[in-house]
Every structure is written in C-alpha cells, then in structure tokens.
Nucleic acid binder design. Structure first.
Lengths: 167, 167
DNA sequence: TTTTAGTTTCAAAAAGTTTTGAAAGTTTAA
DNA sequence: TTAAACTTTCAAAACTTTTTGAAACTAAAA
C-alpha cells in the first residue's frame, strides 16, 4: 500500500465513522483530508480529492468551521481562501465533546428537569417513571461533569488519569 | 404536566437523541417506552402507544434484542410475546458501549493497523500522515481500554472513580 | 467602471433511510 | 387435520438527508 491508497482508505473509513455519529460523510471526509494535509487546502483541492461539488464542499467546510474543527486562512497576494484543520487530536475531541454537549446533553437534561416537576401519582407506572428518569439524570449529570472537567484540563493530565485507570 | 404528558415528552426526546446517535427514532422510542413500563408489553401495546405499524415495531424490537437492550418473555397460558427492557442504566450503557465498540472502534482500528504497515515515504505528506494516524490510534486505544475496563467493572466502582475525578 | 476570480445560496434531483401493510410463515388449540 | 392467533418478511411508499449545479453575490484588479 502506498501513501495515496492509505490516505484514501483512512478518509473513507473516517467518513463511515462520521455517519454513524450524526456527522455526514462529506463533512467527515473533508475533516480527514484536512487533518492529513500538512498544508492548508483550497475548496478546489477538496472538491478534486473527494470528488464532490462546490456547493457540497462549501457547505460542509462552513459546518466544520462552525464546529471549531477547521479554520480559514488567507495567503498574501492570493484571492483564494485556504482551509486547515485543528491537528491536535485532544483539541479535536474537546471541541466535539463541547458541541455534542450543547446539542444533546443540554436538551435532554432540560426535558428531564421539566418532567421531574410534573405531578405524578404513586401508581406503579408513576413510580417507575420517576425512578428511571432520576437514574438517567444522575448518570447524565456525571458525564456532563466529566466533559466539563476534561474540556478544562490539558491532554497530559487526562491521559495520565486514563492510563492509571486502565493500567 | 401529568404522567401521560411527561411520558410522551420523554419518549419523544429519547427518539430525537437516538437519531443523532445513529439509532433510529422508532427504535429509541420503543426503548424509552419499555424502560418506563413496570410491566412487559406486547407488540400491540407498543404499536398503539407509539402509533407505528406492526412491521416497524417488530423490526425495531428485534434490533433492540440484538443490541441486548430488550428481552422477550412468554407468559404461561398466553400466546403473545411480551417485551421488557433492561432497566439498570449502568447495564444499558455497558451494553451500548460494547456494541458500539464492535461496530465502530474495531473497524477503525483495523484500518489504522493496515495503513500503519503501508510503505510511506518521508515527504511532508507522508510524515503528516504517519503522525496523525499514530496519534489517533493512541487515543482510540485508550478509549478502547477504558470501555473494556468499564464493561468489566460494576457501577459503584465506576461511579466512585468518576465522582472522585469530577469532585 | 467593468471584468474577473472567487464564494455563497438554494431549489431541485438523487440517494439513503424508515415505515407501512399485506402476504407468507409459524405455532398452538380445537 | 384445520382454524385461529400470532410473528416475520419484504417490496413499495413515504420521508429525510445529502448533493448538485447554476445563479446570485462579493471583492479585487484592470
């Protein structure tokens, strides 16, 4: 296998992985392509490499910028925009965790909070409802705290904790 | 808000959450409905509660069984099949982590292993490729270890560790 | 000012996913 | 057996998401 084949393989797989995570294939592939590129790339290069349309490339690059995973760069004397990805995987993960927290954890906790103030009787149904939603809230709040913590800490600290935990 | 409204709200939100996680809406809603039910339920009850077709209910219940999140039960003297969900959220999470590990972590690690044995030159492109893929593998393997560890440990131990970590 | 090089938008098309419903299959009871 | 009660399957329909491509827009250069 040579570099081109290896790159292709990795980009494809990152696309598959993304799509099971609610990130569309093109977005994940652009992200993979930019992570693997030592230099920043133009829209045209992204289009050519991934064989996608200009509109698609543009939309997904903006989404990546929105997620804080990709940045724009202007080169002196050039009119084209260049794009590059966050390379430090720790930052990538923190960024993703932060976004997903906002999009997923916050809304479900809101609902849990709302339903916890509902008038619920002591029927078996009611008891079960209270128990299950309370349990879920407890676990989610733990994870929420963990994400918050991790996003404030540096990679070394976190990796050390993990390493110690796993041994 | 009464019990029915609260249940409805929670089931809807669980469906939304599921669909951003690659679990389809009906599957997530059935799961929520069964988690909230103190008694096991029949296909007809699921269909009526969620207003979905028999085929849909059947397919997604089988998928939930496949994920190890829902079980069948036969009641003496009855021909209908009854379904109930795993209630212990810790077990639910372990089960999900185990499945996702199989479906996501294993394949990406396989690809990373393959590309790591590729013949890659020392161009900037080649160096970057090696660096990025190596980093990703390191982080993924840490998480893989963590999941493995968590799935062997009991809730108390894990929650205590988490609690200590977060404080 | 006009032209050129580029970016953005968005309606329509394509692709992908989920859902339905009815027919086929299976198991138990009569 | 045969009928009844139930489960499973799967092609087609409905729905959702993604992608395209061309027109509109913007900014710099001539």
């Amino acid at each position: 296998m040579n570099l081109e084949e290896a790159k292709y393989k990795f980009i494809q797989e990152w696309g598959v992985l993304g799509s099971t995570w609610g990130i569309n294939r093109a977005m994940a592939q652009i992200h993979a392509f930019l992570m693997l590129s030592p230099e920043s790339k133009t829209t045209d290069e992204v289009m050519a490499e991934l064989k996608i349309s200009r509109g698609n490339a543009n939309m997904n690059m903006r989404a990546l910028i929105d997620w804080g995973l990709v940045f724009k760069e202007y080169k002196p004397g050039e009119r084209k925009e260049y794009f590059y990805a966050e390379k430090d995987l720790w930052n990538v993960m923190k960024q993703i965790a932060k976004e997903r927290r906002k999009r997923e954890i916050v809304p479900i906790r809101e609902v849990l909070k709302e339903v916890s103030s509902a008038e619920i009787d002591n029927s078996p149904e009611g008891k079960e409802f209270k128990k299950v939603t309370k349990d879920i809230d407890a676990i989610i709040s733990k994870f929420d705290g963990l994400i918050d913590m991790a996003s404030k800490s540096d990679q070394n600290w976190f990796m050390k904790v993990l390493a110690k935990l796993i041994k």
